[in-house]
Design a protein around this nucleic acid. Structure first.
Length: 498
RNA sequence: GGUCCCAUCGUCUAGCCUGGUCUAGGACAUUUGCUUCUCAAGCAAGUAACAUGGGUUCAAAUCCCAUUGGGACCA
């Protein structure tokens, strides 16, 4: 009971604790996001802790990458390895002596013991248990070795691990998202908590750190749900309070398995690179498993910090639906002020070799982006959408110039008319260009006996001649950006093909 | 194999706790129409779901049980 009081009076402190063994996964970033939002909503602190006890698989570059991508998303922590805090260090590899102390204490109190069983022995026992339809669990061979034997084995350098004495009891806890959850610990067997005094395993390090860092709520992915009873048992044995748990639903592949590579990109960096905006990714991810219960679907991080509620988080896993991400991203792209959008597009154009420094003015570039942006789902799309503005000579087949059942001669006439209209134009402004061509199209149709309203007989050949593409912005937009000289040149080039 | 979790349109979900207002709402996708030289964007409309079977109740998407299906974890 005392425990409960403590839990309720604790200030809110949550953490995101990734292992730096690879790029930041979208699933992980959503967990980070939910933790961040929960902290903000409750005026609490959000802590970043790097779980790098697995020295072989952990690399500094992944820690750097995780930090970079989280910052890009705008998920900012209050304490972490890069900025410090009152509960540091925030990398587990720097806390080894802390775990060692607790491990030694555990051994002295006989709450844990050395186990010298070999991998092979354990494996064969496991097989045997499974064949009898039992849950594989450690049989306790080393649970009651005499101190002398243990000392002797250790002195001989015999391979060993440290096991925690798991009590045979039911473990019950209340999950903020799932409600009451109960596990039977007697099925667990004595679990391994460390490979040696200097090499603690996941469960042990987590429990110690969450306690020492005064974590109030553990918000993590559903895959950790079965880990929870082990950690609760460890907390009890260590005399720690229990944090409150909340297990988030998983992000799923289209086939409902846990989101994985193979079926698409899973690294935040992949989406970053392709030109998804952080606003869109955040909005998309938060809606995967949460919604405010209203029909509102567009949120900024700041709004979410106020409106988020852990109680409204879904229980079932959610498929990562890229189409919806694309839709949201397109929306955010269209809403971006043009100066900002242009800046965001520039790297993609440069990388593609289209944009060479000093060749295109900032104004011109903004115009290009402006007429292309309704077609963009992601920033990288700008390359294909706008390349026509950067190439000197478009390459296309003559037939591209034909609209409906026009013959070469008809197309030629259309282009000659366009040439005349545009040559005569006094001021080269999109409004004038459009007006002149629209009325020209009407006359052209009347003259040729085409359906009056169908302006394609004039405009399609023009647009094709200018863009060299089946789909593009309107001929008016292109002509305005090209300028008179380039526009007329393109028309002449097209006429020569006929 | 064991344990645990989950189940409303193709997808994300509202509704479920506190049964009747649900002929089940919204969004993405899809289809159609409008706009239109193209592709988008925009606007309008349409198709589409309570996994199954039992209870409880005057009444169940909503409560209970079972089944089925899916997933995670352990190894």
């Amino acid at each position: 009971m005392k425990k409960d009081i403590k839990e309720k009076s604790m200030p809110v402190r949550v953490r995101f604790a990734p292992s730096p063994t690879g790029p930041l996964h979208v699933g992980g970033s959503r967990t980070a996001l939910f933790n961040y939002l929960f902290a903000k909503k409750n005026n609490g602190k959000f802590i970043l802790r790097i779980e790098d006890t697995d020295v072989k698989r952990s690399e500094q570059k992944w820690t750097d990458e995780i930090i970079e991508q989280l910052k890009w998303l705008g998920v900012q922590w209050d304490e972490g390895p890069d900025i410090g805090g009152d509960f540091g260090p925030y990398k587990q590899s720097q806390r080894l002596n802390i775990y060692k102390n607790y491990l030694e204490k555990f051994l002295v109190e006989d709450k844990a013991y050395y186990c010298f069983c070999s991998e092979e022995e354990l494996e064969s026992k496991r097989q045997e248990q499974m064949s009898r339809g039992l849950a594989p669990k450690y049989d306790g061979s080393c649970a009651h070795l005499s101190p002398e034997v243990v000392q002797k084995n250790l002195a001989e350098g015999k391979q060993s691990v440290i096991r925690f004495r798991v009590q045979n009891k039911k473990v019950k806890f209340t999950d903020l998202i799932r409600g009451e959850v109960e596990f039977d610990a007697s099925l667990l067997g004595d679990i391994v908590i460390a490979k040696s005094l200097d090499n603690p395993l996941f469960h042990f390090a987590v429990v110690v750190d969450d306690f020492l860092m005064q974590i109030s709520h553990v918000i993590r992915g559903e895959e950790h749900l079965p880990n929870t009873p082990r950690q609760i048992l460890l907390q009890e044995a260590l005399g720690f309070y229990h944090p409150i748990y909340a297990h988030l639903p998983l992000m799923l592949n289209a086939d409902r398995s846990k989101l994985s590579k193979r079926q698409g990109d899973v690294a935040v960096a992949d989406y970053h690179r392709q030109g998804y905006l952080p606003e869109a990714l955040v909005n998309f991810m938060v809606l995967l498993g949460w919604n405010p219960g209203t029909e509102k679907e567009l949120f900024t991080l700041a709004q979410l910090s106020k409106e988020f509620s852990i109680e409204k988080v879904q229980k079932a896993g959610a498929i990562f639906n890229i189409q919806r991400l694309e839709f949201l991203n397109g929306l955010y792209i269209r809403e971006k002020p043009i100066e900002k959008l242009t800046k965001l597009c520039e790297p993609y154009l440069k990388e593609a070799g289209l944009l060479v420094a000093g060749q295109v003015s900032q104004n011109k570039l903004q115009e290009i982006i402006e007429v292309s942006k309704t077609r963009m789902k992601k920033l990288s799309d700008i390359v294909e959408l706008s390349d026509l503005f950067f190439h000197d000579k478009p390459s296309y087949e003559k037939d591209l110039l034909k609209w409906s059942d026009m013959q070469d001669e008809d197309v030629k006439e259309a282009l000659l008319l366009c040439d005349r209209i545009l040559s005569d134009l006094k001021t080269w402004e999109i409004k004038n260009i459009e007006e002149a061509l629209i009325s020209g199209a009407g006359e052209f149709n009347k003259e040729k006996g085409y359906p009056e309203k169908n302006k394609g007989f004039l405009l399609w050949p023009l647009r094709a001649a200018l863009s060299g593409k089946k789909t593009s912005p309107s001929p008016f937009e292109i002509a305005a950006i090209f300028g008179r000289e380039k526009t007329l040149k393109r028309i002449q080039e097209a006429i020569k093909l006929l």
